[in-house]
């Protein structure tokens, strides 16, 4: 267990957390399992790529990716999902259809080649961490992941919107009954969750590179995170990300052929004993 591998696991966990926190927010509050989340991630990455190559500004590409995917989330929620409200399975299957369409669309627009979002020279090269040299960009992703966790935690625990979201996770009807426009909270959460997918895609676009099946891979990982952590739990998403990040890194080192098994085996076992995940609560 070298420092290098621990850092690999942690940086991957940070990226996973960014994507999975968006997934779990939407799942927790709106009860929507958004299987298009991975496709939104990929789309965000491609938007980041296009804006970064066109303008040369890394920061701008990140903002564009987040804003673009928040808008995509708004469209998805308002044009399609609103018609199947209250039907859990129809919602899931509908987002699955959207995921197939989006995935193929990105293939049409950007082609099947592997791309990497260009990163500024500040983030290139390696930094000295204790005893090893480690890529700066991965450390940057780790930093953004931690910052995202802090911001989301503060937002959920210290703001009015956060209080409404927490209340909505527990009992949306009661929130509505106390005179709150819960639909607006739903919509904002959906856009925030989507924006996190966009942020993840922008970072992942340089971390893991962008290619047509990247969307289902990240979706599978974030689903595992949410299943382990429990629906709608921020702490659960963080713990789940670290667990999956570490299992994935060490699984690839120790059992390269069974890497998937190493991740999903423990997850399936956990579910057999705690069907709602580590931090999930029955409703």
């Amino acid at each position: 267990m070298s420092v290098f591998q621990v850092l690999n696991g942690l940086t991957f966990a940070a990226l996973l957390f960014i994507v999975a926190s968006g997934f779990t927010l939407i799942f927790g509050l709106l009860r929507i399992v958004n299987l298009a989340h991975g496709a939104l991630y990929l789309l965000g990455g491609y938007i980041g790529l296009t804006v970064a190559t066109a303008t040369g500004s890394y920061l701008l590409s990140g903002i564009a990716a987040m804003a673009g995917i928040a808008l995509a989330g708004l469209l998805l929620d308002q044009t399609l999902l609103r018609w199947v409200k209250g039907h859990d399975l129809r919602q899931v299957l509908l987002t699955l259809g959207v995921a197939l369409v989006l995935n193929d669309l990105t293939l049409v627009i950007w082609g099947g080649d592997t791309f990497s979002v260009p990163i500024p020279s500040v983030l290139q090269g390696a930094a000295n961490v204790g005893s090893v040299f480690y890529p700066k960009f991965r450390l940057f992703v780790l930093g953004v992941g931690i910052l995202t966790f802090i911001c989301l935690w503060l937002m959920l625990n210290k703001t009015r919107l956060g209080a409404l979201i927490r209340a909505g996770v527990d009992d949306a009807e009661m929130v509505e009954a106390s005179g709150i426009n819960i639909q607006r909270v739903f919509l904002l959460t959906f856009m925030l969750g989507s924006a996190l997918a966009g942020l993840g895609g922008w970072l992942g676009g340089a971390f893991l590179t962008l290619y047509p099946s990247a969307d289902s891979e990240i979706l599978v990982f974030s689903m595992a995170v949410v299943i382990i952590g429990g629906r709608g739990s921020l702490i659960g998403a963080a713990v789940g990300s670290i667990l999956i990040g570490m299992l994935n890194t060490f699984g690839q080192v120790w059992f390269p052929e069974l890497a998937y098994f190493v991740i999903f085996g423990p997850m399936a076992l956990l579910l057999a004993f705690r069907p709602l995940g580590l931090f999930g609560r029955a409703t």
């Binding site: 299943i227 390269p256 052929e257 890497a259 998937y260």
Partner: peptide
């Protein structure tokens, strides 16, 4: 929905094993 997700993940384990 949990059943859907869990079976999806279980199916992906098989896929991962066949691929690797």
């Amino acid at each position: 929905v949990y059943f859907l997700l869990l079976t999806l993940a279980l199916g992906l384990v098989v896929w991962g094993v066949c691929l690797r």
